[in-house]
Design a protein around this nucleic acid. Structure first.
Lengths: 85, 85
DNA sequence: CTGCATTTGTGCGTATGTATG
DNA sequence: ACATACATACGCACAAATGCA
């Protein structure tokens, strides 16, 4: 298997497609708060991209404050901050 | 010339040293608002680093809201927003 | 409009360092 | 010491945007 719906020729670059995919997973609750995201290595295998591309996708989520990264451990979904109730 | 004071073995990684250097230039007024920063290529030559490293340095400034980047053109110092008077 | 140079955007591969367990 | 994972860095390639002749 591997390689989820990533199209290298789409106007949206792969790293953004992957970021959108991960964000969708979080919003669907498939990746609940504090749960670990796939490692960079797993993302490379799952989406069929290079490590830098996987890292770029994670960087998007990090900049949006959706995840945080711990060196040597991995990336995790942030705790919700109750700003939507 | 080339290669300004960048030490690859310092605890501060090169891209942060370069970012700090550029920030200092902005704060000294050597790079006034709307002035163009050196291109990525120029930064690689000036500091003796790879383009990715130069890009990482610019990304730091961009995230801090100190510069903005126009594809195909370059990066520029932002306009001050008068919040310090 | 066409072509060209310049510059940034994206991507791949690889290597080394640091943090964690 | 070791495995895993992220951080940083190098080199390279091609695409896309811009500006100009």
């Amino acid at each position: 298997m591997a390689a989820r719906e990533i199209d290298p020729r789409a106007p949206e670059p792969p790293y953004r497609q992957i970021a959108a995919d991960l964000i969708a997973e979080i919003e669907r609750g498939e990746l609940p708060p504090r749960s670990p995201l796939p490692s960079e290595k797993e993302l490379t295998e799952r989406y069929g991209v290079a490590r830098n591309t996987a890292r770029s996708a994670l960087a998007v989520l990090r900049e949006r404050g959706l995840i945080y990264t711990v060196p040597g451990r991995g990336s995790y979904v942030v705790e919700p901050t109750n700003e939507d109730d």
